[in-house]
Amino acid sequence: MSVCRSTLLLRGLIAMGLAVAMPATSAEPPAPPPAAAIAPAPAPAPPPSPAQILAIPPPLQALLQQRVIAPGYAREQRIERLVHLIFDDDGMALTYDPYATQTLTETWQNHRANCLSFTLLFVTLARAAGIDARVQEVAQVVTWYQDQGVIYSVGHVNAGVNINGRIAVVDLDRNVLYDRYGPQPVSPARALAHFYNNRGAMHMTDGDAVQARAYFQAALAQDAAFVSGWNNLGVLDARSGNLAQAEHDYRIALQLKPRNAPSLTNAAALYRRLGDSRQATLLANRLQQVQRDDPFVQFRLGNAAEQRHDYAAAIRYYRRAVALYETAHQFHFGLARAYFLAGDNRRASREMARARDLAGDDAGALKARYQAKMESLARWRQHDAAAN
């Protein structure tokens, strides 16, 4: 499922691309498993159709016409007015809910959305208002909350808006760090696959295997190369005791994306359960290499080491993350913090300065925060020098 927060960010005119996880061969992606292959079970409620998911409720259509379309504003003004319509108290008054994977009608009724529901809402309304908008996905993100807490997520979506040939990113989260490839535009079918997959994961968490399966199959019907759908279907089959089918699901997921960490993790666990230690070890070794080459994983391990006060390990992991993703100011900040906690103020100051310099010209508040922490470190050094 996707993670996002409640503060809207319009990332000014940033154009970035993501390497899409597609099959290594030119063969057509496998079709979703046929219904006949599934064990008899109570009939699930049918998932909403794509038209039902994206239908604009009449009251919202009227507001869109009145506040965004009818006055004849320029495109940039329509974007701004659409944002106000969605978030202002006299509009939808939308609030963030990480579990609210909803249709547009449900979002209108409940005034709640996660990043996926918001993105579907924004893109659909924008297109209805003549704005060139699209759904985008990011393979991995890290989100900061409070002072030091982090949320690591595989998968995130936002909206891209074409303004005079350049792409501005509309995102609910101002504190998210994208992977090095950034947001990648996806097809409407892929966006809907995310919706069905999220709903399936929620039903699986609730213990409703029948309904979860219906949603995972709906996701794969939209995009048969959707790795997360195959992975989640494998989890569901493994939980249901259908280990042969789970093996099939994971095999397809890894054919589509051989270095997909969740599928490697789950498949290795399945082979251990099946008693195939050779295959389990092979996949575990591949996973270890994937994690070593993943700056987000190294950062997460560094954060975990920091939380348990193992600052030497935290420094090793953060340094690895920085080496893999040198321009992420958040990683330099983590390394600076670990150095400081380990008593190395000189290196802490150096990394803090690097974090400040990488924060960007449009991140004034963040740069000021880093500058204040640098000044605090300088005072610590003066205090230590005086004490000695």
Rank of each mutant, 00 (worst) to 15 (best):
A36E: 14
P185L: 14
R190N: 14
Y181E: 14
L192E: 15
R337C: 04
G343S: 09
D97S: 08
A284Q: 13
A212C: 09
D171H: 09
V297D: 13
R337P: 01
D132P: 14
P188S: 11
A314H: 04
S153I: 00
A126C: 10
Q279E: 10
L254F: 04
L121K: 09
A336R: 00
V161R: 11
R180E: 13
N158V: 10
R67C: 00
L274H: 05
N175W: 10
P32Q: 03
L192A: 14
E306G: 09
L172I: 06
A51S: 03
L192M: 15
R127W: 10
T265H: 07
G343F: 11
R308D: 00
Y181I: 06
G149V: 07
R239F: 08
M1G: 15
A348R: 04
V20S: 13
L121N: 12
R259L: 00
L64T: 00
L264R: 04
D361C: 00
P50L: 01
S26Y: 02
A313H: 03
A363E: 07
L85W: 00
R78F: 01
R174N: 13
Y311I: 05
P40G: 03
A212E: 09
G91T: 02
A189W: 01
V170R: 10
A321H: 06
L85T: 02
R379S: 02
T281L: 11
A238H: 13
R273I: 00
V123W: 06
Y96H: 11
D344Q: 07
T107Y: 05
L120G: 11
V169D: 11
Q184W: 13
A31M: 02
I38N: 06
M374Y: 10
Y215G: 03
A253T: 08
R308Y: 01
L172S: 09
V186T: 13
V235W: 04
V142C: 07
Y196P: 05
S349H: 02
Q382F: 04
S117G: 05
Y196E: 07
G207S: 09
D147G: 04
G334L: 07
W144L: 13
N260R: 01
A221Q: 15
C115M: 07
A386G: 00
L120M: 15
G200H: 07
A212H: 09
T95C: 01
S49P: 01
A159S: 14
R278F: 06
A284E: 15
N231L: 12
S153Y: 03
G229Y: 08
E137K: 05
Q382T: 05
A378V: 07
A221F: 03
D206P: 02
Q255C: 02
R379V: 01
L64N: 02
